[in-house]
């Protein structure tokens, strides 16, 4: 019983910290982009202020109960996803599900968001959701292929298990997975909706797309969702390719702290990389992004998959 309570407490703690890290990252991201722009940029804690402001707005407009589902689903889904991801080697619920589950859990907030945007009745929002879904179809193909390569190599589909098996050597140090990681990083660019793949929320084209009608607490919860996705996707990448940031295995208190710190640095690194790409490219048109992922990315991913397959069967 005590064990169970401790586990619950650890899960709650890690999830909360992960969400806070996500919000912090939004501020850090704006700061980094501002430096590229020759600007000072907002303080790093700007994300907290923005979310606090949105959640304390006096008026909150809703377009009906389906619109509110966006709020409920997006936040629930992203927290649920984080529960199933090992963070800094701590498994949380990681052993209760696997990578496929995480992929599908990530669809809950997306679908909730889409429902809310659809319920607002705004054509911009509908087009934005269309683009988001097409983006999803595009980047998922290379990403799942790299994921399958990992699963075949480690002969498990559990993320916790994959992290565990990378103790000796991170996946990225194995030649085929270098290629796979490069592909997955471009897929990550699409998942995080950073340029050149910030198509779904393009302000000049569709006035911030799905968010067009969101304000107040609804937008606040979406910002929380956005913060969560930053952590979830970068953590997924780190877990799959960078051993989850685990460097110490002795199970002492110190190892938890060190692993957590390494995890933090690694996701910051991945996130910064994606921001730098974001700052130096215009955005694609949606069909160009689709072609990019299905032509070049998928091909490279497939090469790595076949490479892994040959390694495994021989």
């Amino acid at each position: 019983m005590v064990d169970f309570l401790i586990k619950i407490a650890v899960i709650a703690l890690y999830t909360t910290i992960a969400m806070l890290v996500g919000i912090l990252f939004m501020g850090i991201g704006r700061k980094i982009v501002a430096r590229v722009h020759n600007r000072v940029g907002p303080p790093v804690y700007q994300g907290f202020i923005d979310i606090a402001k949105l959640l304390t707005k006096k008026t909150n407009i809703s377009h009906g109960w389906i619109y509110d589902l966006a709020l409920l689903f997006s936040l629930t889904g992203i927290i649920l996803t984080i529960l199933f991801l090992p963070i800094g080697g701590v498994k949380l619920l990681g052993t209760e599900g696997d990578a496929f589950l995480v992929l599908y859990l990530l669809a809950i907030p997306a679908l909730g968001f889409a429902l809310g945007a659809g319920a607002s009745g705004n054509p911009n929002a509908a087009i934005g959701v269309m683009r988001a879904l097409v983006m999803m179809l595009s980047y998922e193909l290379p990403f799942v292929i790299t994921m399958i390569a990992l699963m075949i190599y480690y002969d498990t589909s559990s993320i916790a298990q994959i992290v565990e098996l990378q103790r000796a050597r991170w996946a990225i140090m194995i030649p085929p997975f270098m290629l796979a990681a490069a592909v997955a990083d471009m897929a990550l660019q699409g998942m995080l909706m950073e340029a050149p793949f910030d198509i779904p929320t393009a302000p000049h084209e569709i006035a911030s797309g799905p968010m067009a009608e969101f304000g107040g607490k609804h937008l606040g919860s979406l910002m929380l969702y956005k913060a969560g996705t930053i952590v979830a996707y970068t953590t997924l990448f780190v877990d799959l390719f960078l051993g989850g940031g685990v460097v110490m295995h002795d199970g002492s208190i110190l190892s938890y702290i060190v692993n957590f710190a390494v995890w933090f640095l690694l996701i910051l690194l991945i996130f910064t990389l994606s921001l730098l790409i974001n700052a130096s490219f215009p955005r694609f048109r949606i069909e160009q992004a689709f072609k990019f992922y299905w032509k070049y990315e998928a091909l490279l991913a497939f090469i790595s998959l076949i490479w892994v397959y040959l390694m495994v069967i021989s």
Partner: peptide
């Protein structure tokens, strides 16, 4: 995981409007 979302939903009142 639904608890925070539900709290936000319940604690902050909203107003329904026409589309």
């Amino acid at each position: 995981a639904m608890i925070p979302a539900f709290l936000i939903y319940v604690l902050r009142k909203h107003r329904n409007i026409d589309f």
